[in-house]
């Protein structure tokens, strides 16, 4: 009986230690985050105070920033970050460079001709549908 009591007390002690160490870690992380935010806010306040001292009105810039942020929020409904896998690509910062090789010009010209033909067929179909009195999606008229 004494042994069981001893084991129970020991187990209780171990559990208490585990809980306390986890709590300490959480507290430390929270404190670190708070410190980080406080530092950022202090920096922002200093900058705003400096602007105020120079009598510069920043309310317009702030409201523009707010508008931009809300637009950004609206433009991406329902897209969690994990849906996409982003990488930096080989084209980063490269300007558009038309092909120099004449063979490529020929190939690109053919691609463009095929697409013009495809577009022409699409427009013919739209006109025909319109003539028959069906609903015409007027997107062809505002395209380019």
């Amino acid at each position: 009986m004494l042994v069981i009591d001893y084991v129970l007390v020991l187990a209780g002690g171990v559990l208490w230690e585990l809980w306390r160490s986890e709590k300490d870690t959480r507290d430390m992380q929270a404190k670190a985050a708070d410190a980080k935010y406080e530092k950022a806010f202090a920096k922002l306040k200093t900058e705003l105070d400096a602007l105020a001292a120079e009598k510069i009105d920043v309310s317009d810039q702030l409201s523009q920033l707010q508008e931009k942020l809300s637009e950004l929020e609206k433009s991406r409904p329902g897209i969690p970050e994990k849906t996409f896998y982003a990488h930096s690509g080989m084209f980063a910062g490269k300007p558009c460079q038309p092909a120099k090789d004449s063979r490529k010009w020929e190939i690109l010209g053919q691609i463009m001709d095929d697409n013009i033909k495809l577009r022409a067929e699409t427009e013919i179909r739209a006109t025909r549908v319109y003539n028959e009195g069906e609903t015409l999606n007027d997107h062809f008229s505002h395209r380019d």
């Binding site: 982003a86 690509g89 558009c96």
Partner: peptide, 10 residues
């Protein structure tokens, strides 16, 4: 793949 150097897949 974009001209700004981003590549995404969904």
């Amino acid at each position: 793949t974009t001209s700004t150097g981003r590549r995404l897949t969904t």
